[in-house]
Computed example of a mutant assay.
Amino acid sequence: MNLTDRGRVPPAHPELKAVPVRHPGRWAGAVVILVLLAMLINALVTNPVFDWHTVGHYLFHQSIVHGVGVTLQLTVYSMLIGVSGGVLLAVMRLSPNPLLSGTAYVYIWVFRGTPVLVQLVFWGFLGLLWEKISIGVPFGPTFWSQNTNTLVPTFTAALLGLGLNEAAYMAEIVRAGIQSVNEGQSEAAHALGMTRSQTMRRIVLPQAMRVIIPPTGNETISMLKTTSLVTVISLEELFRAGQNIYSHNFKNIPLLVVVSIWYLFLTSILTIGQYYVERHFARGANRVLPPTPLQKLRALFVKAPAQQAPVTALPPEGGPHV
């Protein structure tokens, strides 16, 4: 525009038409997913083998509910053993004492290097290795002795197999969380006169939780499903309860569906709990916390207030039109 013609108004430009970018791949993928979803729903509804009447009948059966309780107990107790043992092993692994760090390394190497199924069977047959468990002077007289199978019943054997195996994995998770904290903070704490244990408990671990919590939540969900392996030592948890029922009525698929529904329900509860725990420990790192699922759902129905367009001051009369 020629600014020398101050009195002339510039010609109006034609309106620009915005053309949206086309994404044919997205539409093709959506069509494929919808077709597969329709096929799945049709199979679930029309296939008589699913036998949804039997599924509803056994969903809250006494044996199934008892199995759910045993599964939850194994999950909670095994994770308590795993987390507490993992913290201890991680601290030992990071210790400057070669005996402590070497012992922790060997423990992690053994329990991570052998399948948890083999470890469960080993603990189930512990009575074959040691008929009695005794307390006394090493290589000397015995003060107390008890039959191994009485002292370590099936539930305890399952708990030891799951918990001690989990401690090896939690040790590496905790170690990664501890090492994610800046070393300068530990040095500052030591300069203030804090001991190593005080520094670990008050300075390092609270900050490391932000790194430790997400994989720990995943390990808890994985533990809930791993408890199904204790069926090899004849402990009746959720999966074993379903097996016992369909071994009598031969309704294999309906009982497997019942077991799967319970596992999906329990893992969904744990997933929600993990989300809120992660959100709690993210408060120190994020200025603005991510919205919760309820807040996202509320935002779909509550319209956000419209933003007022900024007002542009008009040029003085007779001035240049830019």
Rank of each mutant, 00 (worst) to 15 (best):
N286Y: 14
L270I: 08
R287N: 10
Q274Y: 06
H280T: 03
T292M: 08
Q308N: 12
L270S: 03
R283N: 00
V311Q: 10
Y276S: 05
V302R: 13
Q274E: 08
A299F: 02
P293I: 10
A299W: 02
P316Q: 01
R287G: 07
A306L: 14
K296C: 10
V302S: 11
P316I: 01
K296D: 08
P316M: 02
S268K: 14
L294E: 09
R279Q: 09
A309K: 15
T271I: 03
T292Y: 07
V288D: 00
N286W: 12
I269F: 15
A309H: 15
Q295W: 11
G318L: 02
E278K: 00
A306R: 13
G318I: 02
A285E: 11
Q274M: 07
A309L: 15
V311N: 06
L314T: 07
I269W: 15
A299Y: 08
P293A: 11
P316F: 06
Q295Y: 03
A313Y: 06
L294H: 05
P310Q: 15
I269M: 12
T292D: 15
L270P: 02
L300V: 05
G273E: 05
A282S: 00
A282Q: 01
A304N: 13
K296Y: 04
P291F: 04
A309Q: 15
Q308S: 13
P316T: 07
R287Y: 11
V277P: 00
A299C: 09
P305A: 10
A304Y: 06
P305C: 12
T312Q: 03
R283Q: 07
T312L: 14
L297T: 11
L270T: 03
Y276E: 04
F281N: 02
